[in-house]
């Protein structure tokens, strides 16, 4: 799960579970199956990841639904 990845680590997205709008939006924003994410920072209940050349802050609740390797 993305939520557990340490700051500075890079991981590959295996699957995104669920059909909620927020997950669909994340995929539209570039967090898609097969993409490599870098965890940039974590603070409180949010986490910042970098995908390609964009950075996205998401809540940990959402990060739980992103399966990574």
């Amino acid at each position: 799960m993305l939520e557990k990845v340490e700051v500075g680590k890079k991981v590959k997205v295996l699957d995104i579970e669920g059909k909620e709008d927020s997950l669909r939006k994340l995929q539209a924003m570039g967090i898609r199956k097969g993409k490599v994410l870098e965890v940039v920072q974590k603070l409180g209940r949010s986490i910042v990841v970098k995908v390609d050349h964009s950075k996205i802050a998401i809540s940990k609740g959402l990060a739980q639904k992103i399966k990574v390797q």
Binding site: S22, K25, V48, I58
Partner: peptide, 10 residues
């Protein structure tokens, strides 16, 4: 409160 999703542009 719905989940935060926010792009941090360069």
């Amino acid at each position: 409160l719905h989940h935060m999703i926010l792009e941090l542009p360069p």
